[in-house]
Amino acid sequence: MSLMTNHTPQRLHADACELPQRQVPRHPADAPLSIHDMTVAYHRKPVLWDVDLDIPQGKLVGIVGPNGAGKSTLLKAALDLVPKVSGRVLVYGKPYKKQRRMVAYVPQRESVDWDFPVDALDVVTMGTYGRIGWCVPVFRKHRRAALEALERVGMADYAHRQISQLSGGQQQRVFLARALVQDAQLYLMDEPFAGVDAATERAIVTLLHDLRAAGRTVLVVHHDLQTVREYFDQLILLNMRVVAHGPTDEVFTDANLHATYGGRLTLLSEAAEALAQQERP
């Protein structure tokens, strides 16, 4: 009985007689990105399960996991591009909606129609639209900023090429330049290394290091385990849930990789499936 007297009924509900469920505000207020308790479902099937992350300031952070682990979904859900079932996303301590200017997104290359009638410079200039605002046209200074960004990724010579005439690596660099011109604090990149040539890969790595040196934080979805140790300060191992998160040297262990890529998830997947089915009549 004495146990109960300490509990208000509300409290009791919160943890239903078990231990305290959660200590909510444990994030340092200035973390570039903190994701709290995020669950995401696609077509009523859970893809991400209860993700909690704090991305530290000024680090290159890689997200690694098998296909369908929800890596891209993690970025998209953080950016409100796909609906979340639950969860909160804070950017530098404030809700993402208020901090859009601090974040730049590099989507997967396949996400757009490369046959679209624009040239490389046009695409990069789109990075400045957020600053320009409604109905105001693009001025020369914006285009100059875009050209500078193209130069930073070594693509200035291709500024007036129609985008379908660029190689995969070049298209990726155009996307990176578009993010650069936003001059954000936090960069979220979805598979920037996928299908690019060696020269582009090196250029991207150099760029990532430049960003880190300038105190920016970069979160990169990555697929190549070979290069993880070389490229990233921190690592997130993801497979529906965060398997491990921390400095690359500590996290990139055989045991963790096995937990990420190995099986052992059959029960949870089954339960997720059952949950999805439960929604349907």
Partner: peptide, 25 residues
């Protein structure tokens, strides 16, 4: 134990999962 979810986080998920678990599961 199997998914390395912090102990203070497991309750919420279990709340949801317990309702869809069959005897066999």
């Amino acid at each position: 134990h199997h998914m390395h979810i912090p102990v203070d986080h497991v309750h919420g998920s279990a709340e949801v999962l317990e309702h869809v678990t069959t005897d066999e599961m």
